[in-house]
Structures are given as C-alpha cells and as structure tokens.
Amino acid sequence: MNFLRRVIDLYVDGFRNMTVGRSLWLLILIKLFLFFVVLKLFFFPNFLAKEYSTDEARAQHVRTELLEDK
C-alpha cells in the first residue's frame, strides 16, 4: 500500500512540477488525437477486417488477389 502511494506520488508530483513537459504533453495529446481519432477512424480502416467478417473469407480474398494477373 505504501509502495503504491509512493508510485502515485511520483507521477502526481512529477506532472505537477513539469515545465517543458507541459508543452510536450499538449503536443503528444494533439498527436495521439490526430493519429488515433482522425487518421485511424476516418482514413485507415483495416481493409480485410472491414470488408470480410471471417478469417476464411479474408484468406480467400488474399488467395484470389495473389492469383490474379498483376
């Protein structure tokens, strides 16, 4: 329990006393929002997971794709 409290204190005090870190965290949060919310949701769906519901259907699609004349 004492150990857990010390760990929590480490993070709480650390974040509270940050100087450069505040700008960096803001930048990281903007970046994570852009990457995981904007890009991942709207521009980067997992093609096979979105188009096919089973692994067998995905495998069949890839087989067809790989045997098609390119």
């Binding site: 990457f35 980067f44 769906p45 997971a49 890839v62």
Partner: peptide, 18 residues
C-alpha cells in the same frame, strides 16, 4: 517520436493488406 511508428502499422492494415 511517440506514436510516429504506429502510423506504419495503420498503413499495413489499409494499404498493404495482402
């Protein structure tokens, strides 16, 4: 640099699914 590598994994799933 945080999370810049994650984008590569997004691209695998979308652009390079085969």
């Amino acid at each position: 640099g945080v999370a810049t590598g994650i984008i590569l994994e997004f691209e695998f799933g979308t652009n390079w699914s085969n």
